[in-house]
């Protein structure tokens, strides 16, 4: 593996998909997160900013119960953290391309 410096990147994004971060959107989110090497956590910024969930865990993502209209904070650390946060933010912002 190439040696890269570990960086941390974060972003706050509005979730406007009608299902929030559940069902298919949650599934897509987890699959997208799992394609990156970085450690990625996601928080429900609106409801409970202290509880973190592993963005690569479907149960984790579901358990922070993100509804439509709420904000999530995505924090990634690792060699591809900025790409990961960009991809996940884009996924949410484009409303999971529906």
């Amino acid at each position: 593996m190439e040696s890269t410096t570990t960086t941390t990147t974060e972003a706050i994004v509005n979730v406007s998909h009608e299902h929030g971060l559940h069902a298919r959107p949650a599934d897509l989110f987890v699959r997208c997160a799992s394609s990156f090497q970085s450690t990625i956590h996601v928080y429900n910024q609106t409801r409970n900013p202290a509880r973190k969930a592993n963005a690569k865990s479907i149960l984790g993502v579901l358990s922070i119960g993100v509804h439509t209209g709420e904000q999530v904070r995505i924090v990634a650390s690792g060699p591809d953290s900025s790409e990961a946060v960009a991809a996940l933010s884009r996924l949410i912002e484009t409303n999971f391309e529906e």
Partner: peptide, 18 residues
């Protein structure tokens, strides 16, 4: 138990299946 409790609060067919 923690997950079940958290998820059981959500009214949703998909979540119930999980």
């Amino acid at each position: 138990d923690e997950y079940i409790e958290l998820l059981s609060e959500i009214e949703d067919e998909y979540i119930r299946a999980r």
